[in-house]
């Protein structure tokens, strides 16, 4: 879990997320995120010993489906969504290694 002192480097995260942000946007988000982090940090004032971090808001578990086949999408509409196709495959820039 994130430590209380962790700051978030907006430019770095934007790069990870493949988002193009200019310097002004970076600075603006950096300020806004600092405010949000500061707000969330209040939770640290409580005694949280022995409390597991919550991953989901509702106490609902074990939502399954049976291992039964359902029809897949028809072939042509699937590839109609491809920016470019290569026979029956999605064509993408060459992947190295």
């Amino acid at each position: 879990m994130a430590s209380a002192n962790q700051t978030i480097d907006v430019a770095y995260v934007a790069n990870l997320a493949r988002l193009e942000l200019n310097a002004a946007a970076c600075a603006q988000f950096q300020r806004q995120i600092a405010t949000i982090v500061e707000y969330v940090r209040q939770i640290g004032e409580l005694n949280l010993d022995g409390i597991e971090p919550t991953s989901h808001g509702q106490p609902v578990y074990n939502v399954y489906r049976e291992d039964v086949e359902r029809p897949s999408l028809p072939h042509d509409p699937v590839l109609a969504n491809a920016p470019t196709r290569l026979d029956d495959e999605f064509k993408v820039p060459r992947i190295v290694e």
């Binding site: 489906r65 086949e69 029956d88």
Partner: peptide
């Protein structure tokens, strides 16, 4: 028989992008 999170078949050797 089916994928982890959907009902598409896991059978091997089908022609590309038919089990999606």
């Amino acid at each position: 028989r089916t994928k982890m999170f959907c009902g598409c078949s896991t059978a091997y050797g089908a022609s590309p992008n038919t089990q999606v």
